[in-house]
Design a protein around this nucleic acid. Structure first.
Lengths: 63, 63
DNA sequence: CTCGTATGTAAAACACCCTTTACACAATGA
DNA sequence: TCATTGTGTAAAGGGTGTTTTACATACGAG
């Protein structure tokens, strides 16, 4: 899976910590997802979509 | 998370095994997801959405 | 130069996802 | 009756997701 997290976050001028706080996860989790270390769980993906006010499919993409 | 898997599958008259085959997972995984034992991973959620030709948000719902 | 902020990474620990194998039960049909 | 199919469940094991703590690097502000 690929994701546009880094770009979307930059567009909003949020730090990884800012986003982590909004998602209630650790900064390391945000970093790991952005750098492709692993994919978020489905509940976390939903929360990410909520925070960015976008559909999951608009943020994540199958590769 | 709640999901409409059982209903969607029934609408298509697929057995859990049929769906598992389409998803390339075990029948137990399908059963566990349907019975709410756990949520699928994000990649599997994408595949489920693909198999049913629906958006993830139309199948899964935050609770 | 120094301080604070942002980012990447690592290890250990724990919970969750998914597998295989296996058993149980209900319903259906030969 | 007997075999088959569909579903639910369980245990054990491997792999993944997330946490905490910690260290390193880069960069801009002062």
């Amino acid at each position: 899976m690929k994701n546009r997290l880094k770009v979307l976050r930059a567009e909003r001028s949020w730090s990884q910590q800012d986003l982590a706080d909004k998602l209630n996860v650790s900064r390391q989790s945000v970093n790991a997802i952005e750098t492709g270390k692993y994919d978020p769980s489905l509940p976390l993906a939903f929360k990410i979509a909520e925070v960015f006010d976008m559909a999951i499919e608009a943020i994540f993409e199958r590769d």
